[in-house]
């Protein structure tokens, strides 16, 4: 019984092999096999259809991911380029404004600086008759000194940057970060309200930001000297080295008021 089964297996096996060899040898000679191949493909195309769809979906998804990645990189490049151009544009604009404003300034002499308010205010010899109004900026060598705080016919008082009651919105030119410059009433000036980690470093320039018609943007204030403290809520205070020499003020420049400034 055992031998008979084994013989049967081997007879069938050898027959299958012989048939396989016959098919292998006959395959190139019988063109009808090509039709059989086509028929097999057609029959299997039905159950394979969802798989083909799945493969196409996977392929499309793969290429879509590649394209999306490429677009994301392009977008990042464009955004960086745009940021750089915006900075350049702002710098150019402030230079232009500076040049325009320089043509509207008039010279004034410091006539009084009281020892008690040494770091708060001084008086100059230009007033309403010279088109001076409250809020106008006052400079020394192109750098902001303070703002006109009160005006009479022939003189006016200027509140200094070092005054603890004068707060001027400014921008750090290199990073375009906005903050406020304020004095301590004791000869120092600080930049406040800057969040931590904004890449602000000593030497960066600080100029006025656009806040009112009377104080145009882009007027240089000075540069960052050092970081002094960080508040609990994450805001950093920097000491500012003013461009103007506030301890030796003899003459200053001041804008003359014009109607264009209120436009």
């Amino acid at each position: 019984m055992w031998g008979k089964r084994m013989t049967l297996e081997w007879v069938n096996g050898v027959a299958a092999l012989a048939l396989g060899l016959l098919l292998l040898g006959a395959s190139p000679r019988f063109p009808f096999l090509k039709n059989t191949v086509d028929f097999m493909g057609q029959v299997l195309s039905v159950p394979e259809y969802p798989i083909v769809m799945l493969r196409e979906f996977c392929r499309s998804f793969y290429f879509w991911s590649l394209d999306r990645n490429k677009l994301r990189l392009s977008l990042e490049t464009l955004q960086n380029e745009n940021s750089r151009l915006q900075i350049v544009n702002s710098v150019l604009l402030s230079e232009q404004i500076k040049a325009e404003l320089a043509s509207r300034t008039t010279e004034a002499r410091v006539t009084l600086r009281e020892p008690l308010g040494w770091w708060s205010e001084f008086r100059m010899d230009k007033g309403l008759n010279d088109d001076i109004v409250m809020g106008l900026p006052v400079f020394q060598d192109g750098f902001l000194v303070g703002r006109v705080s009160s005006v009479s016919s022939f003189s006016s008082w200027v509140e200094l940057l070092t005054s603890s009651s004068l707060m001027i919105p400014v921008v750090v030119e290199e990073t375009r970060e906005l903050g406020v410059v304020v004095g301590d009433g004791d000869g120092s000036v600080f930049l406040v309200y800057i969040p931590e980690g904004r890449g602000i470093a000593p030497g960066m320039k600080v100029s006025t930001a656009l806040v009112s018609e009377l104080l145009p943007p882009g007027i240089p204030v000075g540069h960052i000297e050092r970081e002094t403290s960080v508040s609990e809520n994450g805001y950093v205070t920097y000491k500012i080295k003013t461009g103007a020499s506030l301890s030796s003020l003899y003459t200053v420049s001041v804008f003359k008021y014009s109607k264009e400034m209120t436009r």
């Binding site: 096996g13 299958a16 396989g20 098919l23």
Partner: peptide, 27 residues
């Protein structure tokens, strides 16, 4: 044995384009 033969033949027809290769291998 005959399932291997038929499976190999079907695989040849579907993927190889001529008969015999996988038919013989599988058998």
């Amino acid at each position: 044995i005959w399932t291997a033969f038929l499976g190999g033949l079907a695989w040849d027809l579907r993927w190889v384009g001529f008969t015999g290769f996988f038919t013989i291998s599988y058998t």
